[in-house]
């Protein structure tokens, strides 16, 4: 015989008719002899009836509409997210798309930057070239001059009918111009003897055309100006000799002896013009030695001791 506690635990299942045959029989036998457990069973049965008879509560009339409104709102949100995050059938996360975009942007910027560098680098190259040009002979410098200058040069060389006096005057004037107008206002570039200045000016124009940065431009000018002054001085010397060719050879030897650079000879009708770059200290000695070769007439402006090198133009004429 089971005690009341054990039976009470099974009464709930007994009501549901969920007990096995043996347990059900044990409960029924106990209930016959136990009014206490019988009372509990009656109470449980009434409780069950009360709960079972609870009426269903109706949800509010707007209930479904409210739920569906929220559901549709969620659906739209979801579709927007799908639209932005999964634009393709294949689900590529937005992070991968972003990475690809950044990579492409980086390549684009790198390429654009490379082009800019290419634009900048060639413009910086002419700086040493210009410096070299300045130290070249006038004839070499003429190659860098404008076409107009070249044409003038050609006229001078090819038109051998040009009177000696006129050429001489041109040379003297050019020298005067150069001596008197050191700097950007130099107009002597129209003469054969002043291409260096012209080349500098042209270079400046080119630089401006290439739109170099101001800093770079300023640096170029700063480095260029003192050098230009060091080669601008061009005193002319008129040497009258018996034999122009012999004298020209001797003068050349003399120039070589005095370590002259960029020696150039121009043979013209009735005269020969020698140009060379000579150190300032040696100019007086050189002129003194010239007097041994022929009759020297110095027609240039006074020498500037601050200048390092002098471009000397020697005109050799018959007496």
């Amino acid at each position: 015989m089971k005690n009341c506690k054990e039976i009470e635990n099974n009464l709930s299942l007994y009501l549901d008719d969920s007990l096995s045959g043996a347990d059900k029989q044990a409960v029924e036998e106990h209930l016959k002899s136990c009014p206490q457990c019988t009372k509990v069973l009656v109470q449980l049965s009434k409780t069950h009836a009360l709960v079972n008879n609870l009426a269903e509560v109706e949800p509010p009339a707007w209930f479904k509409q409210k739920i569906m409104a929220k559901v549709r709102e969620e659906s739209e949100k979801k579709s927007l997210v799908q639209k932005w995050f999964y634009p393709l059938r294949i689900k590529i996360p937005v992070q991968i798309l972003a990475t690809v975009f950044i990579a492409m942007l980086a390549v684009y910027i790198y390429r654009a930057g490379e082009e800019q560098i290419k634009e900048v680098v060639p413009s910086s190259v002419p700086v040493p070239v210009m410096e070299v040009q300045k130290s070249k002979l006038p004839e070499q410098k003429m190659k860098t001059s404008t076409d107009e200058d070249i044409q003038k040069e050609d006229q001078v060389i090819e038109k051998k009918e040009t009177p000696r006096k006129k050429v001489s005057e041109m040379a003297v004037d050019a020298a005067k111009d150069v001596n008197g107008q050191i700097g950007p206002d130099i107009k002597a570039d129209k003469y054969v003897s002043a291409p260096a200045v012209k080349s500098v000016e042209l270079s400046e124009t080119e630089l401006e055309k290439k739109k170099e940065s101001n800093i770079l431009d300023a640096a170029i000018r700063a480095s260029r100006t003192p050098h230009a002054q060091s080669v601008m001085q061009r005193p002319n010397v008129l040497l009258k000799v018996d034999d122009i060719n012999i004298a020209a050879g001797e003068v050349e030897k003399l120039l070589i002896k005095y370590e002259a650079k960029n020696i150039n000879r121009q043979i013209m009708q009735g005269k020969t013009i020698l140009t060379a770059e000579l150190k300032n200290q040696k100019i007086n000695d050189f002129t003194a030695r010239l007097k041994t070769i022929g009759q020297v007439e110095e027609g240039s402006a006074p020498l500037n001791n601050a200048v390092e090198n002098i471009i000397l133009m020697i005109e050799i004429l018959n007496k």
Binding site: E56, V57, E58, P59, F63, K64, I67, M68, V71, R72, S75, K78, S79
Partner: peptide, 18 residues
């Protein structure tokens, strides 16, 4: 993604759920 189908399910089960 058919929300109308979900509406049917809401209709069917809302009372018991509630």
């Amino acid at each position: 993604g058919n929300t109308d189908a979900f509406e049917v399910l809401v209709e069917r089960h809302q009372k018991k759920m509630f």
